[in-house]
Design a protein around this nucleic acid. Structure first.
Length: 561
RNA sequence: GCACAUAUAGCUCAAUCGGAUAGAGUGCCAGACUUCGAAUCUGGAUGUUGUAGGUUCGAUUCCUACUAUGUGCACCA
């Protein structure tokens, strides 16, 4: 038997998805053929091998396509000797700690700026993606061993507060605001914009009041602080509900006393120029429109505060990476800010990363707070919770803490639907899809998890390891599940590398599908102690992976639902 | 006008560095609960990957043009 036949034999023995003849055919490629002749069949083999145990498949697919593949294949043969048969592979995966992956990030500091919403406005369905992508990435990087810092760059400064004060003084009163909180602030905000259509001088009054805030006028500052407190209470309430954690609330107003030194620095570097009365940083060399730093009246802008914030963060936290998460509308803005910092000579500017997520539209058109075309996040949560409660009443009326579980599942559905798709894409919200609980959804994963828990619970005793026989798990259905568990860490790494929790969400769905198939095909709690304990061993692994996976997506994993 | 996205099954979306017969869910049709939870599972039908070219042994993927949609572009954030 020659070398190739030997390899083919080993492969065919280990991999049921591909025949010996096929393998032999694929390996029988002259190594000196031109690229086109052998690349295709080689790839054919390596792709088929993806169905094989992970380590073998990865090694092969990496090596086969390269010119020196004959040499590499000998290395692969070495690997194969470690995995004689599926049983050993299963043992390896299930006995090893399948969630313990290389902690690549040792001590590196990753700062994530997310959930940076404007205060005095309600959370709407377009905001959830930002919050949830941010918190999920926070959890993912933390899991990988990075030192994460979550910062909320609160939008608590700007002309809008002047406008709100005008509206409050004209049409609001203390009792209403105290009783209704953010709802009343929204009403005033909408009212202001309605009235300003008819009477544009209101906008001037708004600017005047904002300028009073900036100058420290007591009445203005008091109202501003009051509104800010209301907003923060509301924000914290929602964060508690969603189980979102922020390390720091450092809003835009925080940077007000740091702007003058920023301007000094920029002008001493000679990159500040005057244009049409305003102070700008020209970005012609980057083929970008200029970055406006100061208005002609000398007051600051959004970009000014972001420049100051970046420098402050670098000095204060000395980050290795700083990730900004915002809607895609702000792409140009961050591009300008980052390039301005680069132009100013800050070498760390390349460590600033902007992750833009898509916009959410309504079927009735674009979301707009100022004309009231919004669906708030609370409405979505309430609807989802209510629907879940109905399902629980129908399917599991004996459940003890129904309301709590209903909220966890309802919110789980919302979060999952926000993380299951490519986060850069725009989406159109519809109640029909927003309240779907079947198929590729959060509740499907949660349901599968609670099924695992149920099995573990029903077994009462601990798994008896002395009865575990991994060769009972080498059938295709069980083995598929084992492979998916073993490759779960790859998805965590992909998610981190691409700043995209979607990979984890999709992997969880694959695990659930494989598990439910397994569950349907085999009885688990059987009399035979060997079979029972072995299958429970696998169930336990699935449960652990699902729980950790859901946690990385900021979703609760109730044990019963 | 300029810039940046996006376009894949009826609908919502995947497709790893350019790889094999482009895959899931949903909806539709047909099945599986006196048995570990049916929010589940099994089977079936569904495609000129926006259009036209180019590069390549090979293109949903890269390049060019065009079409459609979205977003941004000077004192808002």
């Amino acid at each position: 038997m020659n070398f190739k036949e030997n390899i083919a034999n080993l492969l065919a023995e280990n991999i049921k998805d591909i025949s010996y003849e096929e393998i032999l055919l694929s390996i029988e490629i002259p190594p000196d053929s031109s690229k086109g002749d052998f690349a295709f069949p080689c790839f054919r083999l390596s792709k088929a091998l993806k169905k094989a145990p992970n380590i073998i498949a990865t090694e092969l697919s990496q090596s086969m396509i390269k010119p020196d593949y004959i040499e590499k294949i000998e290395t692969v043969a070495g690997y194969l000797n470690f995995f004689v048969g599926r049983a050993n592979y299963v043992k390896n995966i299930l006995e090893g700690n399948y969630l313990d992956i290389t902690k690549t990030g040792n001590k590196q500091v990753i700062l994530i700026d997310y959930a940076s919403l404007n205060i005095a406005k309600p959370f709407h369905i377009g905001h959830i993606k930002n919050v949830v992508v941010g918190d999920s990435l926070y959890r993912i990087f933390k899991f990988l061993g990075y030192n994460c810092i979550g910062i909320n760059h609160l939008g608590d400064w700007g002309t809008q507060f002047g406008k709100l004060i005008v509206a409050y003084r004209k049409w609001g009163n203390k009792e209403e605001v105290e009783n209704k909180g953010i709802v009343e602030l929204l009403r005033l905000y909408i009212k202001f914009h309605d009235e300003a259509e008819k009477d544009p001088t209101l906008n001037d009054q708004g600017r005047e009041w904002f300028s009073k805030i900036e100058k420290g006028d007591k009445e203005a500052i008091d109202i501003w602080n009051w509104f800010k407190d209301i907003s923060l209470d509301y924000f914290n309430m929602l964060c508690d509900k969603l189980d979102i954690h922020m390390d720091y609330f450092i809003g835009e107003s925080f940077y007000m006393d740091k702007l003058s030194s920023l301007i000094d620095t920029l002008s001493s570097k000679g990159i500040l120029t005057e244009s049409e009365g305003a102070q700008i940083i020209s970005l012609d060399e980057y083929n970008l429109p200029p970055c406006l730093v100061l208005k002609k009246d000398g007051s600051s802008l959004y970009a000014t505060r972001d420049l100051a914030a970046a420098i402050y963060r670098k000095n204060e936290f000395n980050f290795d990476k700083c990730i900004y998460i915002t809607a895609s509308e702000q792409k140009l803005h961050f591009n300008q800010v980052f390039k301005s910092l680069e132009k100013a000579g800050y070498t760390w500017a390349n460590k600033l990363i902007h992750i833009a997520h898509g916009l959410v539209n309504l079927e009735s058109g674009k979301i707009s707070t100022r004309n009231g075309n919004i669906i708030t996040l609370e409405e979505w949560i309430d609807e989802a919770t209510e629907k879940t409660l109905k399902i629980i009443e129908e399917k599991n009326p004996a459940l003890s803490n129904k309301l709590k579980v209903a909220e966890q599942v309802g919110i789980g559905a919302i979060i999952f639907s926000n993380l299951f798709y490519n986060s850069g894409k725009d989406v159109t919200f519809s109640w029909e899809t927003a309240l779907r609980f079947d198929g590729e959804t959060g509740p499907y994963v949660q349901y599968t998890h609670s099924r695992c828990c149920s099995l573990m619970r029903k077994n009462e005793a601990d798994i008896d390891v002395s009865h575990v026989d991994f060769s009972l798990l080498i059938d295709d259905t069980s083995f598929e599940l084992v492979k998916l568990i073993s490759s779960f860490p790859d998805s965590i790494i992909s998610s981190a590398e691409k700043y995209e929790p979607m990979y984890i969400a999709r992997h969880l769905i694959e695990i659930c599908k494989a598990f439910n198939k397994f569950y349907n095909e085999y009885a688990i709690l059987v009399d035979d102690a060997k079979v029972k304990n072995t299958r429970l061993y696998l169930v336990n692994a699935v449960r652990n992976v699902l729980r950790e996976g859901l946690n990385l997506l900021c979703i609760k994993a109730p044990e019963e639902m």
